[in-house]
Amino acid sequence: MKIMNCPLNGPRNISEFAYGGEVKPTPDAQAPTQEWADYVYYHANQPGILREWWLHVPTSYWFIAERDVTTDRIIATFKPEEVLR
């Protein structure tokens, strides 16, 4: 069984989590439409280690996980405030 460590709730079965996409900087509110379109619709989709948003569904708690998308190995998880300062 695959286990992920939720920063709020501790280790939990992977079935309790939902993927929320890559962590990437949000464009400025006045940024051109093209930049917003890239932000919303385009993803790097490259192999390697990525930071991603994940949701612990029973608590609706969003956090950030560092995951090797090639091997699907979860390297570390963080509270959002630890990453987005």
Binding site: M1, N9, R12, N13, S15, E16, H56, V57, P58, T59
Partner: peptide, 25 residues
């Protein structure tokens, strides 16, 4: 899936998790 034995999950502890595939406290 959470270990709820007394020596691991003491009185007063809370697990917000999945029980019978339902979200539960």
């Amino acid at each position: 899936g959470v270990d709820l034995r007394a020596h691991k999950f003491a009185q007063g502890r809370i697990a917000q998790t999945s029980v019978a595939r339902l979200n539960a406290i």
